[in-house]
């Protein structure tokens, strides 16, 4: 029951983020970029601006909506990079065993120990601050998590008799990886992808708060938080909206991952 509840809330929140991102592609209440000095710092819920306006007179709701695009984009690319590099590494390590496996795992350990934020700052210094560098940095920082999950799951699959049976009938290691290992580790990797998506969103918010991600005027939740800092005492509610958006998105992906994991846990599954 708990798994179902997490899954349901997670799906609703994630769905909300995705729908907002899609809708903002074709419609926002106001222009999310245009500065309007006549409308500066309008309060929320009174007048035409539902969530009020910021220090430049830009509609907050429109900015929140457009930011969802960046957040989804960052999540997909970062998790994609981590998947494409991490899963093959982990599957390889799990399949070959021995010193090859040790080598891969020790390298990912070192990789893990390297702070993600430092990596992002390095990237920003080397290639300039943009959404692109932020996505690549977050993606690379997530690789070890995928490599570990994939390796552990692969080891478990490799101990099954169907892998032995496949070897006994002459199936090559590459075919075993594609035919037997990948389909059977997919659920676990999927859970990790959902959790990593949440982490990527949080990381992107942190980076853009520091100015290391998308550059103005492109709105992002982190950027909006940074802007709201100026008015923290006069208009604290300005910081509330992007904060809520980040929290909802991260919570959504984490609950989704949790729910999926519980759902896939064999101990909780009824015997088929």
């Amino acid at each position: 029951m708990k798994a179902r509840l997490s899954l349901a809330i997670g799906l609703i929140l994630v769905g909300l983020v995705l729908v907002t991102a899609l809708v903002s592609l074709v419609w926002t209440p106001y222009d999310p970029i245009r500065v309007d000095s006549a409308q500066v710092l309008q309060p929320p819920l009174h007048g035409p601006h539902l969530l009020g306006t910021d220090g430049f007179g830009i509609d907050v709701l429109s900015r929140i909506m457009v930011s969802a695009q960046i957040c989804v984009q960052v999540g997909i690319i970062a998790v994609g990079i981590a998947l494409v590099i991490g899963v093959p590494l982990g599957v390889f390590a799990g399949q070959v065993g021995g010193w090859g496996s040790e080598l891969v795992m020790r390298v990912t350990d070192i990789w893990y120990a390297f702070p993600a934020l430092l990596l992002a700052i390095l990237f920003a210094a080397a290639f300039g601050s943009s959404t692109g560098t932020a996505m690549v940095a977050i993606g690379l920082a997530s690789v070890p998590a995928f490599a570990r999950i994939a390796r552990a799951a692969t080891l478990q699959v490799m101990s099954q008799d169907y892998v032995l049976a496949a070897r006994a009938c002459g199936t090559r290691p590459a075919a075993i990886a594609v035919r037997h290992v990948l389909p059977n580790i997919a659920p676990l990797v999927g859970v990790q992808a959902s959790v990593s998506f949440g982490i990527a969103i949080l990381a992107e918010a942190a980076l853009s708060y520091l100015g290391l991600s998308a550059q103005p005027p492109t709105p992002t939740w982190g950027r909006m938080l940074a802007d709201a800092q100026t008015y923290l005492f006069s208009n604290p509610v300005l910081a509330l909206w992007p904060g809520l958006a980040v929290a909802a998105a991260v919570l959504g992906f984490n609950l989704l991952g949790d729910g999926l994991r519980d759902l896939l846990d064999p101990r909780l599954k009824e015997v088929r």
């Binding site: 099954q160 008799d161 169907y162 496949a166 075919a175 037997h180």
Partner: peptide, 25 residues
């Protein structure tokens, strides 16, 4: 093998399982 629950890949169709030896290079 001893236990067919473990010796048959749950994610493959029975036809693919049985013909796997025939696809081996």
């Amino acid at each position: 093998f001893q236990d067919p629950r473990s010796s048959l890949n749950p994610r493959m169709r029975v036809g693919d399982i049985i013909t796997e030896p025939l696809r081996s290079p």
